[in-house]
Design a protein around this nucleic acid. Sequence first.
RNA 1: GAGGGCGUAGCUCAGCUAGGUAGAGCAGCGGCCUUUUAAGCCGUCGGUCCUGGGUUCGAUUCCCGGCGCCCUCACCA
Length: 440
Amino acid sequence: MAIRKMGKASFAHIMDATARIQIYVRLDQVGEDAYAVFKLLDIGDIIGVEGEVMTTKTGEITIVVARLELLTKNLRPLPIVKEKEEDGQKITYDAFADTEARYRQRYVDLVVNRAVMDVFRKRSQIISAMRDYLDGRGYLEVETPVLQPIYGGATARPFITHHNALDMRLYMRIADELYLKRLIVGGYDGVYEISKDFRNEGIDRTHNPEFTMMELYVAYKDYNFMMQLVEEMVNVIAQKVLGTSRITYQGSEIDLTPPWPRLPLFAAIEKYAGINLYGMAVDELKATAKELHVEIEDFWGAGKIIDEIFANKVEAHLIQPVFICDYPVELSPLAKRHRENPKLVERFEPYIAGREIGNAFSELNDPLDQRDRFDSQMKLKEAGDEEAQVLDDDFLRALEYGMPPTAGLGMGIDRLIMLLTDQASIRDVIFFPTMRPEKQ
RNA sequence: GAGGGCGUAGCUCAGCUAGGUAGAGCAGCGGCCUUUUAAGCCGUCGGUCCUGGGUUCGAUUCCCGGCGCCCUCACCA
């Protein structure tokens, strides 16, 4: 948007959600009153124009305005972003760049920084493409409770709230998992949910307290099936929204074309840290962590230490898509034991650009084993692990009625969108990221 | 939670380790201008220099505390 006013004829650019075009306003065409109104316009005012289209002597398509109407007058000046094209390069002057102002006043950010609007348009297209893909395979989109008397399905601290009429504590969900699996018990063979989860954790460029998660559960399938689904789905989405499987994320070229390699967790650690942790006792693991300069807490169990070493030594190397699979059982209280090794579970996490974008497993459907796993979690909680999972009696009761073998998946949608839109911060893919309240 | 950086006009920034209570461009306002495109020219308005304290004759500038934002690390998706 820009206005170039002159005495009796002026140029301006008008813009809507899709494009901008130049208008040419002449005193002798619109009349004195309309021209007077035009001269009072500010950038950000909303107008309607009618007129013929012409090409100016510099070759720009331009509307010669015959009628001009002011639709909305603004009272606050819009930050002016000036652009100049030089040798095909677009130079921007006076950009509205203050990140705090951009996040707090996203409406201004969207108006002024049009590229931001495109990122969010892609966000919408990515989610639509995902729905299309899942719907096309016959999976049913469902909704489960956000307010839960017992939170579960992930290791995280919850937000706590209170219901007045029932006078009871409720938690904002940290995951959809346990309710969706109840629906599998109920007999659906494929359900998914795309919705907000809430975790009472720190905020950084890959974490927002409320974030969008997609969870999918498919009966009579296992984690191998789910790996194929993930690599295919992500690639299909990229093809549909971006038209390519080759993307660039923060300078790294990434090829999403399936199949993605499968790399067992212990093999990955051995590959990048040079040590095979498999079979090590807790003391041995603690010593190894120290040697590798990985900081750990005293109360941590073997699984957590392994996870920490992995996070510190391996994650950053996983730029191209890869499935890290077969995690230690202690880390995954809801996953089924590995068919070949009961100390492991059939679980995988897809990594792209050094970042985990999901988590999946063959779901644990043995109610007795599940009860044991919950018991182990409760012990961790007593030992001081605030994020350990809580026993859910009704969920166990559901499993006791019989859940078929099931494959489950959770995907962080915001992170997938960051990846596909090449955004460095989760705050650049969430319209209104969580911020401290503005001080008056 | 720890470390680092930043916070000056509506926007983008300068001034600040040579302390004398602020400046540019754009926007706004008033003029001139019938093919401009970062339009131009003339004039003009605009600031608790984030906040509270300290040092000082005097602080936007130096020191300390606070608040906010960003980055890195830690926890997690």
